[in-house]
């Protein structure tokens, strides 16, 4: 384990990820647009910072959070741990979905906290805040997306434990999205749809995938190849619902305050 060889390997990986994007961007910039963009130096420096930042970020995650998180996912889904947590009150061999309560709590918390740290969500939140002129708070958006991911992943874990087919959950989620779309404030809809896709990225996917795999390997009767998938789908569907709910809630509160304000206020006593 050498810091520098690791860092070098990760940097090379990141460069090969960024390279095709850079080629497309600058290719079109110079061949089609044929104009040097303003502040080219600054932009190139920015790309360099992105490269360095992502390399450090990924290496740090690979060193500290991912191994621990993966180990935790394994340990929490281990039948021995589940049995110990329930002090063996049940008949051996039968598994109740309630027995996995630590898994659901872990799924909720890890879903929430990894989403808060997700760099692509930060990017979208910064942009949304800028475009909406501050009406959409960076933290309001990030927290509502994180709650959506948290709920989605814990529900996804519950589905793996009970073994329901995934499509009923997804279709039910779609129905909720469609209903909310017809009543939510128009401005939030595109952003809400987008927030489904941005949540599952660098930080969330590795940990969530480990959780799904661990769970589907240890719950009797589940096939990891079939049941191990689907958590990411839950994590990208539920933020759509929670972001629209956040907008509906803010609208509701604003309306109620407006109603309060528009009521005629008692005239102050004229001072003599």
């Amino acid at each position: 384990m050498n810091i520098f060889t690791d860092l070098l390997a990760v940097t090379i990986n990141t460069v090969s990820d960024v390279l095709p994007i850079a080629v497309i961007i600058f290719g079109f910039q110079f061949v089609v647009i044929r104009k040097v963009p303003a502040h080219l130096g600054k932009i190139l420096l920015g790309f360099l910072w992105v490269l360095i930042g992502l390399s450090f970020f990924l290496l740090g995650l690979e060193w500290c959070l991912f191994p621990l998180g993966r180990l935790m996912a394994e340990q929490l889904t281990d039948p021995a741990f589940i049995a110990a947590a329930n002090s063996g009150a049940e008949i051996a061999g039968t598994i109740n979905w309630q027995d996995y309560y630590w898994v659901y709590i872990f799924a909720f918390l890890i879903g929430f906290s990894t989403t808060i740290a997700e760099p692509s969500l930060m990017a979208v939140a910064i942009k949304a805040n800028e475009v909406s002129g501050g009406a959409i708070g960076v933290w309001g958006l990030r927290i509502s997306v994180a709650i959506g991911v948290a709920v989605g992943i814990s529900l996804g874990c519950y589905r793996i434990v009970v073994g329901d087919p995934i499509h009923w959950y997804i279709i039910a989620g779609y129905v909720i999205v469609v209903i909310q779309t017809s009543v939510a404030p128009k401005l939030i809809i595109p952003l809400a749809y987008d927030s489904g896709g941005v949540t599952t990225s660098t930080v969330t996917v590795p940990l969530v995938a480990a959780l799904g795999l661990g769970l589907s390997e240890t719950v009797p009767g589940r096939n990891p190849l079939i049941d191990g998938f689907g958590l990411i789908a839950f994590a990208s569907l539920f933020p759509i619902i929670s972001v629209m709910a956040y907008a509906q809630l803010s609208e509701f509160i604003a309306k109620r305050n407006n109603v309060d304000d528009s009521e005629p206020e008692p005239e102050p006593e004229p001072e003599l």
């Binding site: 600054k42 932009i43 190139l44 420096l45 920015g46 790309f47 360099l48 910072w49 992105v50 490269l51 360095i52 930042g53 992502l54 390399s55 450090f56 970020f57 990924l58 290496l59 740090g60 995650l61 060193w63 500290c64 959070l65 740290a117 760099p119 930060m122 990017a123 910064i126």
Partner: peptide
């Protein structure tokens, strides 16, 4: 490393991407 990486990334985002 994670803290440094995130800081640099956000900076590069606003400067470059």
């Amino acid at each position: 490393f994670v803290v440094l990486g995130l800081t640099f990334f956000i900076h590069g985002l606003e400067q470059g991407l």
